[in-house]
């Protein structure tokens, strides 16, 4: 049998078919490895739902604490209430309001010159630590960064361009640090010669201090629980 033109055509079609089949096969196995859009969407919906559930519970807890506070306000529990309020403010369990300052920090707007370390011009966790520390030394009574209450146990960590605080709160610049306390003391402690702001401004890091007569600092958005640390009295009771 002599090959006719349509034999050639058939062979060509067969070749294309074969390539298509193999590509198809590889694509299908690849798709099985990546999570499906629908599944990820379901996951995202679950996360959103959990987030709103947490927020609801947070609100409920806040309300219950307020109720307890009202009960404590009853006649004979006055002194107890004063102690409770102070401990709650210190622990970050109560939101606070009062006069204070707002410090806004942002990355440098200077471009690093060739050969210079560009790292110097970026805001670091350590810079924020210094500012917080300075404010504490100046008698700040409550602190927050971008609306996240700063507790004793709050860490400040650089993760790329963002900063991590209170374990899972990711903050992006600009960072606004609010501090309730004596406005003059707080502002002066940062602005003094050789102080933190002067130090930061050498690198062009943008820092501004604003006095606010009525700052609102929220309570810690979570529950503080200790897994390792046991209060002394309890330890004694167990023994």
């Amino acid at each position: 049998m002599r090959p006719k033109p349509f034999h050639l055509a058939l062979a060509l079609v067969g070749l294309v078919l074969g390539i298509l089949l193999s590509v198809q096969f590889r694509l299908t196995t690849e798709t099985m490895k990546t999570p499906q859009v629908s599944r990820v969407q379901a996951m995202a919906a679950k996360v959103n739902e959990a987030r709103s559930e947490r927020d609801r519970k947070q609100e409920q807890v806040n309300k219950m604490r307020a109720d307890l506070d009202k009960i404590a306000a009853g006649a004979e529990l006055g002194p107890l209430r004063v102690d409770l309020t102070a401990a709650r403010i210190e622990a970050g369990l109560a939101g606070v309001t009062g006069p204070g300052i707002e410090v806004t920090l942002n990355d440098s707007n200077m471009a690093a010159k060739p050969g210079e370390n560009p790292n110097l011009y970026v805001l670091h966790d350590e810079d924020i630590l210094r500012v917080l520390n300075e404010l504490r030394a100046a008698g700040a009574e409550a602190l927050a960064i971008n609306g996240q209450r700063v507790l004793a146990t709050s860490e400040v960590r650089c993760t790329g361009p963002t900063i991590l605080i209170n374990r899972n709160q990711r903050l992006t610049p600009p960072f606004v640090i609010s501090a309730v306390g004596n406005q003059d003391n707080l502002a002066n402690s940062l602005k003094m010669r050789g102080g933190v702001i002067e130090y930061l401004q050498v690198f062009g890091i943008q820092a501004s201090v604003k006095k606010v007569s009525n700052l609102n600092i929220p309570a810690f958005s979570g529950v503080i629980s200790f897994d390792y640390a046991k209060p002394e009295a309890e330890v004694r009771n167990n023994q």
Binding site: E59, N62, K63, R65, D67, A86, R88, I89, T97
Partner: peptide, 13 residues
Amino acid sequence: SLQFNYAKAVWKG
């Protein structure tokens, strides 16, 4: 002892 001269607690219910 703790002293808060500026901060006042607020309860949001």
